Amino acid sequence: METYLVTGGAGFIGSHIVDKLIAKGKQVIIIDNLSTGKKENINQEAIFYELDIRDNLSELFNQHKIDYIIHHAAQIDIQYSLREPDFDSDVNITGSVNLFNHAVKAGVKKVIYASSAAVYGQPEYLAIDEKHPVNPISYYGISKHTPEHYLKVFKELYNLDYIVLRYANAYGVRQDPKGEGGVISIFVDKFLNNERPIIFGNGEQTRDFVYVDDIAWANLLAVEKGSGEIINISCNVQTSVNELVEIMKETIGSSLEAEYQDARAGDIKDSYLDNTKAKEILGWEAKYDLKRGLKETFEYYR
């Protein structure tokens, strides 16, 4: 039986990947330090270690023959990265390199690495494809991009295969509005508590929202397909924050109006990712449009 190590497997996206792997009959080991992951997200059929990716993982790798690593453990708060760049780089860069080193020693076949649209920075053109210049404008963007370089060299030197998945704005069930929460989980929380959502800027800024279930499937496909590739995972759809609020109001039957505040430093005006490569290499495309994804998200939190 193939064995998978999922880092951050108690977290938002990682836990969905674990569930899908176990449903497919795979053996799954989770490492998560529970800083943002939650015990209740842990699939009972997985083997769980409360570890940090910066720890010495030799014992774990000696105990289990790991075939594949799906790497989602990270510091994922952009604003926090701007306040604490040393911590951000320690977790996202040093922690990742530590993991890759262990992977090489243990003869792991392939690493699937969760990267981010944040690596692109201010778009020079839309839709953003994988050839778009990488020019991050936050420390988080830098710390998510750097392990991509390490993986390329690890493959060249030690034949460690990999796929990098750069996610658009992830949302859905189990996302924590108080932790890493994206705009959708924060707005869901507001609407369900009958509070007005807060929009920074005029609300005309656009994003590409991709549902967590679709992201999880992309990870499973990336294990089987592609080699040494960087692939955007997105809906290739541009939605403004104002449109998002209107769809949410319609979904939940709310008449609450948004409250507008000053735009935040470092926020990008428009962003959406081209997903052609995901279709071609992985045979993947998003099954959830925003209305369907929001409906499931609201139902879960209700």
Rank of each mutant, 00 (worst) to 15 (best):
N236Y: 01
V108R: 12
S234E: 03
A263G: 08
S185Q: 01
N56W: 00
K24L: 05
S35A: 13
V119K: 07
S89E: 14
I233H: 12
N275Q: 12
I78A: 11
G283I: 11
I281Q: 06
L21P: 07
I231D: 04
H102I: 08
E259R: 10
Y113I: 12
V164Q: 02
I22E: 12
S234R: 07
P133E: 13
R302T: 14
V111E: 00
D52Q: 06
K26D: 09
T251Q: 10
G201D: 04
Q44T: 14
V97A: 05
V245M: 11
E156N: 09
K144V: 01
V223H: 11
A218K: 01
L126I: 10
A218D: 03
A216W: 05
K38A: 13
E259H: 09
D289T: 07
I78T: 05
Q63A: 13
K277L: 13
I268Q: 14
S115E: 07
D129C: 07
Q79K: 08
G203I: 14
I17H: 11
Y140P: 00
H145P: 00
P177R: 00
N194E: 15
A263N: 02
P123I: 08
Y272E: 05
Y272P: 07
R292V: 11
V119I: 15
T276Y: 11
L51N: 09
E50G: 07
K287R: 14
G9T: 03
D55R: 14
E180M: 09
G228Y: 11
I112T: 03
N33S: 07
H132C: 14
I198K: 10
G172M: 03
N41P: 12
T297R: 04
R83Q: 15
N159M: 14
V212N: 02
K39T: 08
L221Y: 13
K155N: 15
D88I: 06
K249W: 02
S240N: 10
I66S: 06
S255P: 02
D274G: 12
